[in-house]
């Protein structure tokens, strides 16, 4: 973030001592994810996510374009994440800081690189035309957890979106309007969910006399197989903006319901016991399952609302 949130020593002390007692300012447990509020808009592919005070809107759109030369059988998919000062005065417009760059990369890796969207199904004529899917993420308010919230938003919006149907007549590609043919849902291969863990050092800033590496040998209390063996770090799930500003390192795990880890990123910072990371991955799996279920539930609710007037539910899916 361009300008760091300036947090007074008093607040820092207070938040850290609360965390030490496993308490948090918003009354959550330290390993509790905030309640996810997911809503869909009137148009298809419009999702709104609220995670505590963090809010964002994702809009998915599609247009016909030319595939990349090296990938003639695939459509294109772009995610734009532009954190503006709309979200918080801490962000500057049109300038992305290092942290924002990391965030964009993370979302891209979580959804695009993990092949959540089947790009081959977006091909219309190989090498000539394909669908270009765009997901624009707009941040409305910031209170930590941007990566987690964006990931939920993008994937939910993709699942909600319907693209116009196409057919090929000789050399011509016909794009059928919504009135003409029922629009087709995108083919989503899996639902990746990001969970961010924050780590706090228990003893603040090591004094120059002691050697932190020597003081935390792997053979210490940690080796006796206790799951929460890491006495030197406090693990916090889904940090708020304040906690994000104070944390010593972070770890983002992207996982789906099929127990596939799509991505893990721990970009340096305070070291964490390997066992803790495994423990985090298991916690992430549980959270991801809950969130995936929530997304499906909300999609179903939206579907039934849309089909309320119809006798037969409109669908373009093939009966398989």
């Amino acid at each position: 973030m361009p300008k760091r949130k300036d947090i007074s020593l008093n607040e820092r002390q207070f938040i850290l001592s609360l965390l030490k007692d496993s308490q948090r300012l918003d009354g959550r447990a330290i390993d509790q994810f905030r309640k996810v509020d997911l809503k869909f808009g009137d148009s298809l592919g419009h999702a709104e996510v609220q995670l505590g005070k963090t809010r964002l809107v994702v809009r998915v759109s599609a247009e016909v374009s030319k595939p990349y030369e090296d990938r003639p059988y695939e459509g294109t998919f772009i995610i734009t994440t532009d954190v503006s000062s709309m979200a918080s005065p801490l962000f500057e417009n049109n300038r992305s800081s290092d942290d924002e760059m990391l965030m964009t990369r993370l979302i891209e890796k979580a959804i695009r690189r993990s092949n959540a969207l089947d790009l081959e199904s977006l091909c219309i004529v190989a090498g000539k035309s394909c669908w270009m899917i765009r997901a624009d993420v707009h941040y409305l308010s910031y209170d930590g957890g941007l990566v987690d919230a964006s990931c939920i938003g993008v994937i939910a919006a993709l699942m909600h979106f319907r693209r116009p149907d196409t057919s090929i007549d000789g050399d011509q590609t016909i794009i059928h309007s919504v009135e003409e043919r029922v629009p087709v849902p995108l083919s989503i291969l899996h639902v990746p969910i990001c969970v961010t863990f924050s780590f706090f050092k228990v003893d603040e800033v090591p004094s120059s006399t002691e050697n932190p590496v020597a003081a935390i040998p792997g053979s210490g209390q940690s080796a006796n197989g206790v799951p929460t063996a890491d006495d030197s770090a406090i693990l916090v799930i889904d940090a708020t903006a304040q906690e994000e500003a104070l944390r010593h390192s972070e770890l983002t795990i992207t996982i789906n319901k099929n127990r596939d880890i799509c991505q893990i990123a721990k970009p340096g910072g305070y070291s964490v016991e390997a066992l803790t990371i495994l423990e985090c991955a298991n916690k992430a799996y549980k959270i991801a399952t809950n969130i995936t279920d929530l997304i499906y539930r909300r999609l179903k609710e939206d579907e039934s609302k849309r089909n309320a007037g119809n006798l037969v539910p409109l669908t373009a899916e093939n009966e398989r």
């Binding site: 300008k3 300036d6 007074s8 005065p89 801490l90």
Partner: peptide, 19 residues
């Protein structure tokens, strides 16, 4: 306010984030 800087003749105090 929060002291955000120290100078020769005083301090800089921030009364609100990003102001």
């Amino acid at each position: 306010g929060v002291v955000v800087g120290r100078q020769t003749e005083g301090f800089r105090v921030l009364l609100q984030d990003a102001s």
